[in-house]
Design a protein around this nucleic acid. Structure first.
Length: 627
RNA sequence: GGGCCCGUAGCUCAGCAUGGAUAGAGCAUCGGCCUUCUAAGCUUAGAAAAUGAGGAAAGCCGGGGGUCGGGGGUUCGAGUCCCCCCGGGCCCGCCA
């Protein structure tokens, strides 16, 4: 029994008296019971009359159809409140959760359907910063969510291995004398990003001749010049390997790495361009500042048209980012005749194969027929993403499947920026991260800071623990803290990262959730009694609240699957953990008055542990049994 | 100039999509619980015990703290929907 079934049961009661939509919602206050119907207000609006009286009449009729779980129906100023028989309801909830275990909350609404999620897609010339981590954590949560809902999900990571920013670092290696191997044990991705990229960018700004050289290098890479292409590929793969270490550290998984250079060599674009040309969606500018460029005609689009048409092919014949993304998007939606070949490039820590596009690859992995294609890309790319979607629509690809999952960026507190040598303006409240200027907090740096803090806390609490155990748990808590903080905030809101604030691990944080989980584990391991679903007495309010929350979980999961409001999951997890803390404080389990009660409460604790475990799994917060 | 987003307690944010019963958390602050299921531990007074004091939780309870940015409108009912305004942010490149 879940909340959903309770709704079904009450809906049946209403149907038996001729009301199809009873507008049922969870009661706001436990004093009102479990379920509330607002139908009396609807009827009053439709036919006139006093909602209070209408509700009373409905209650009169309903009382003849009492169902098993409902113990009373009452009308109160227009609301129709249903109370449940908690002796039975609690039994049903516990039975359902404990029997289903890690499947509790799963659904089959996605069975047989495919979903593609693209996330991360960080340029392979630097280490990930916290802004990227927001992308990774959101994307990975979507992946986990849709798996949980029964979909067949493929995760893509787009590797832009042929842009200007690659040319920057190549320039550094070939022309400016930066050694290919960093000194002082720097990780290669951090070396490329923190040292080479930042310093080269600075030099290019000062010396226009270098900008010219960079442009030339970019061209050589794109043309697959023997020396430059090879060097580029080598650096890309090296950085990528390191980047993936960070992503894996965050517990994110990938299936396919799409190299942009391969999108070019597979020439997906020319096919797409041909179609756009045939339907008259593109034209070549013959005069004006954009003479010689091919543009996408946006004049029929109500909003996009206001900012003019979009260049797809530059006057030198090369494609723009938007053009390449249209080609990539068409491929994702199954709208290209060609498909990539892959080779197994690496295995992730969980043994999964990670494929990379490869002209001579021996692996095929068709992805066509996806019901949804979700692209996790920060909000600044909203307009280009809308253009891509519009182009896909013009190509007749049912582009409503193409979803830009946008999110606001992560900025730094002025305090943190100043520590990096930034000179703030008067009244400035945050500082945007910038790879080029070296202003950013790397994911690994932040995780290590968190870890250090946690490590010392663990040492105080468990002086007897081995170094390995401390390391392991500290890592899990650090990751939990970061992941939770990055997914709990509304995607429409900027996160201003302040490392001092971040290191506070009390209250509404990942560790709090993990702590609740560990507490439940402690209780359970101290008893070898069987569980009982039946309570010998009416559960107290703290128990009811916990069970109520537990029963609601499947509803939450489905809702997020529908509206993609990811933060609902962490919010739910927090409420659940908070309900458990109150329960823990007020309701003795191991010291319960009698053995039957103890068995029942053990089942409650177990059910809590299962549900919190399930939701933490969805948001990628590691489960910690002891902390 | 055009498009989009944000504005809820001192600070950080839930709640807004699908309008309903007294607007919720966390941090901070003040006060309380307290060895228990997260630990029969520690310091101190005492010869010792009892007891007292201090301190003590990734915990709990309570207090204070709100013109839900402002103004109109729709509605029996608006933090939630509509319009206008104010403040802040982002985007509008032959970069990606």
């Amino acid at each position: 029994m879940t909340y959903k079934k309770l709704v079904e049961e009450v809906s049946e009661m209403f149907k038996s008296i001729g009301i199809d939509d009873a507008r049922l919602t969870p009661s706001k206050n436990p004093a009102y019971g479990e379920l509330t119907s607002l139908v009396a207000f609807d009827i009053a609006k439709e036919r006139g009359g006093d909602p209070g009286k209408i509700a009373e009449e409905i209650v009169k009729k309903l009382s003849e159809y009492k169902s098993g779980m409902i113990s009373s129906v009452e009308a109160l100023s227009g609301y129709i409140n249903f109370k449940v028989d908690w002796m039975r309801y609690s039994e049903e909830i516990l039975k359902t959760v404990i029997i289903q275990g890690s499947d509790y909350g799963k659904s089959n609404i996605g069975s047989g359907k495919k979903i593609i999620v693209e996330h991360t897609s960080v340029n392979p010339n630097k280490a990930l910063h916290v802004g990227h981590a927001r992308n990774v954590c959101l994307g990975d949560t979507l992946y986990r969510l849709f798996c949980f809902l029964g979909y067949d999900v493929t995760v893509l990571n787009y590797i832009d291995d042929s842009g200007t920013q690659m040319a920057d670092v190549i320039l550094g290696f070939t022309e400016l004398g930066y050694p290919l191997n960093p000194e002082d044990n720097l990780r290669f991705d951090a070396y490329c990003g923190d040292v080479v990229y930042v310093e080269v960018s600075k030099k290019i700004e000062e010396d226009p001749a270098l900008a010219e050289k960079r442009k030339n290098i970019a061209k050589l890479i794109e043309e697959r010049d023997e020396k430059y292409y090879k060097l580029n590929r080598e650096i890309v793969e090296k950085v990528l390997r390191d980047q993936l270490k960070t992503c894996w550290r965050l517990r994110a998984r990938y299936h396919i790495l799409n190299m942009e250079s391969d999108i070019l060599t597979y020439d997906l674009w020319s096919e797409v361009f041909k179609k756009l040309y045939e339907i008259g969606a593109v034209y070549k500018a013959t005069s004006g500042p954009k003479a010689g460029c091919w543009l996408l005609n946006l004049s029929f689009h109500p909003i996009l048209s206001k900012e003019g048409d979009e260049i797809l092919i530059k006057s030198d014949g090369s494609t723009t980012y938007v053009a390449r993304d249209i080609a990539y998007g068409a491929w994702k939606l199954g709208g290209t005749s060609k498909d990539f070949k892959y080779r197994v490039w690496i295995r992730d820590p969980w043994g999964g194969e990670v494929l990379v596009t490869d002209l001579d690859g021996d692996v095929e992995r068709p992805i066509h027929g996806a019901e949804k294609v979700i692209n996790v890309i920060d909000i600044r790319q909203k307009r280009p993403q809308e253009i891509v979607k519009y182009a896909l629509e013009l190509l007749g690809l049912r582009a409503n499947r193409y979803i830009h999952f946008g999110y606001e960026v992560v900025a730094m507190s002025v305090k943190d920026a100043v520590k990096m040598g930034y000179k703030p303006e008067e009244g400035e409240e945050f500082v945007h991260m910038s790879g080029r200027r070296g202003l950013y907090v790397k994911v690994d740096t932040l995780l290590d800071m968190l870890k250090e803090k946690i490590r010392s806390e663990i040492r105080d609490k468990h002086p007897e623990w081995s170094v390995e155990k401390i390391e392991e748990v500290a890592e899990e808590i650090a990751v939990g803290a970061l992941r939770y903080s990055l997914v709990k905030t509304d995607t429409d809101k900027m996160i201003i990262l302040d490392t001092d604030e971040m290191l506070k691990l009390e209250g509404d944080t990942g560790p709090y959730l993990q702590y609740s989980y560990a507490r439940a584990c402690r209780i359970l391991e101290k008893s070898s009694l069987e569980y009982s679903f039946k309570s010998p007495i009416e559960p107290v309010e703290e128990e009811k609240q916990l069970l109520r929350r537990i029963a609601y979980f499947p509803e939450v999961v489905e809702e997020v699957g529908r509206n993609l409001l990811v933060k609902t999951l962490p919010n739910y997890a927090y409420m659940l953990a908070s309900d458990f803390s109150k329960f823990y404080e007020k309701v003795p389990v191991l010291y319960a008055d009698n053995i039957e009660l103890k068995k029942f409460r053990l089942a409650e604790v177990l059910a809590f542990k299962i549900v919190l475990g399930n939701v933490l799994h969805l948001i990628g917060v590691p489960l910690v049994e002891e902390m």
